[in-house]
Design a protein around this nucleic acid. Structure first.
Lengths: 354, 354
DNA sequence: TTGTACGCGTTATCAT
DNA sequence: ATGATAACGCGTACAA
């Protein structure tokens, strides 16, 4: 069964590294034209006898398609760029879902972690441009609107998620941060709380402003005066949340309940509670944005707002595929607002002294 | 300052999509040769006057380098493939670190989530081959040794991490699972426990076997008989951990301490404890592999083994860069075993009845 | 240092 | 259905 090495043997370059076989090699080995091999590879009909020859040659040579060459020719890479700040529970879930769903479509996801600064976002966009990604998913900085706009001008479909970038004409997928926050705050009001604090994120971020707006909505619905002392920024971070919560608890007239606007800040608050011996929900009611296993397994359980990560991913993929399969269409852009679930657990209870 | 549209204007194809400017366009606009532009882009010296012309032309045309064409020419994509099962806290951290460090080197990471089955691993390797990734990072299945070997034969550097695949000649980076598990178990013995249970992972996985081996090492060091009843698999999963722990607690002569071999299974156990009202550490001591915020903030705190994720990423990157910068060298392959920290918290205490 | 021309592997076009 | 051939954008000898 030994095949005598002929002209079709693998060539070695000067470094001793084997040159990968190409469709030309396959065509020669199979005794057919290059075009026939190309068409076989791309699933177009080929005469049965030729197909056998080609399949045999591919196996014998160990041929593997070069996606780069195909992409260059077709002007389509089947790669989508995904820019995000870090792999939190939320972003990780969305990235993974999007990645899996795209794979099922024969597409791949190239991810880029930006450092939440202008330079690294620019670097990421430049990188994606060089890689000729077909489209982009971005959780970006508002300050980068101009850069995103120049991407859009190049006819590259873009979907924004999580954080908004005003002034760019693209598709958007968000959790309904404002409504979820309103409902969460209303829950606290429903069970009898009247002074409610909030630990917010960076006000530069859309999500932070929306969550704060929802909190204010709920208070206004009941004609409750907004007390600025009860609104403290924790800068999205664990340490910031720790400090913000400390500041809120140190008020002359502290609240009986607090809404913490993300997971990290809640972790900071919980650490503080341990330090000072504050007990949930006896001493304070707490509700947090983002649901994680920690909250379910916490001794009392933390009431939390769960973002619909899989639905977000589905929506992102759906919007992108529509644009990609229909490049010429200028269908109107849409902004999807997806509802969150509020998971009631033990950290929210009616206040002791009402 | 208006530039009259000349031959250098952007061409539109039939779909109305602009063709991206190339170095040829830049060369024409700048009045220099193609080669000069290419050399400028790649940071080689160019006459000052030419450089100005080229920079101006690049800005005017909005030229962006085509990494695909360059990759095809150079046979180097500067993309590394990263194959992993899912985005757990551990894998997410490693992926993010590797990604950032590679970016600093001008390289990118293309990730692929396999479904822990043979078909999807094969699909991933095929995909990476088509994308011509320069090298591969894999947390793989042992069953896929043959496939990995054929990648190695193509001279593509591979680094294995987390889970071993015996019989392939590549670099490896692991936490010292066995020693960490031995030390964790020894800690329980030190504080007076004599009957210690273990909830293990899938025995098909290297990490599961190593962690079990460390547990056995510790018992043997003290001449304690291994009791098979105390060894139960939780299949790595939350539900499996729940069941395994239930089974262990239902023994006629249950242990006073349990070592849970990963995060998910520990979560399952904690859920069970809540259901049945078992209290840590009064009723049972618990130690877990993988340290996460949950364990720090748990009411009693969970003693845990922390894998050195950043060091793992550093090691992976270091090994890959060595191979990539030195393709011809056949330096011996290394297996790095990195020590874990054991973080003592409230879930481990000496047994009540000793 | 600069300009020219060829090749990388693939797809698409056009005749056959 | 197939075969021949021209691109795609870039890097790099080679000659100037």
């Amino acid at each position: 069964m030994d095949e005598a090495p002929t002209s079709e043997q693998e060539a070695n370059d000067e470094t001793g590294r084997r040159r990968a076989p190409t469709i030309v090699d396959v065509a020669n080995a199979a005794g057919v034209a290059i075009g026939t091999v190309s068409r076989f590879i791309n699933g177009q009909p080929v005469r049965a006898s030729n197909r056998e020859q080609i399949e045999a040659a591919i196996n014998r040579l160990g041929y593997q398609r070069n996606a780069l060459a195909a992409a260059m020719k077709r002007d389509v890479t089947n790669v989508i760029g995904f820019m995000l700040p870090s792999l939190s529970e939320f972003h990780g879930a969305v990235l993974q879902y999007v990645s899996r769903k795209m794979r099922a479509q024969g597409r791949a996801v190239l991810s880029f972690f930006h450092d939440v600064d202008s330079r690294s976002v620019a670097e990421g966009l430049e990188f994606f441009a060089a890689q000729r990604v077909d489209c982009l998913v971005i959780d970006g900085l508002e300050s980068e609107a101009a850069r995103i706009r120049s991407v859009v001008e190049r006819q590259i479909p873009v979907v924004l998620y999580d954080n908004d970038i005003p002034g760019v004409v693209v598709d958007r997928v968000y959790s309904n941060n404002r409504d979820a926050s309103r409902r969460a705050t209303s829950h606290l009001l429903d069970i009898g709380h009247e002074r409610i604090g909030i630990v917010t994120g960076h006000t530069r971020d859309y999500t932070a402003r929306e969550r704060l707006a929802g909190y204010i909505d709920a208070l206004k619905e009941r004609d409750i005066q907004i007390d600025e002392d009860l609104i403290v920024s924790g800068q999205w971070s664990e340490q910031g949340g720790h400090q913000a919560m400390r500041q809120i608890l140190a008020l002359d007239h502290p609240p009986t309940a607090v809404f913490s606007c993300n997971y990290n800040m809640t972790v900071g608050s919980l650490a503080l509670f341990r330090e000072i011996g504050l007990r949930l929900p006896d001493d304070l009611s707490l509700i947090s944005f983002d649901d994680v296993p920690l909250f379910r397994l916490h001794e009392t359980g933390i009431t939390a707002i769960a973002q619909p990560t899989e639905l977000i991913a589905d929506s992102i993929v759906g919007l992108l595929l529509t644009r990609l399969d229909n490049r010429t269409s200028h269908a109107p852009y849409s902004t999807l607002l997806l509802d969150c679930d509020i998971i009631l657990r033990g950290s929210t209870r009616r206040p002791r002294i009402s």
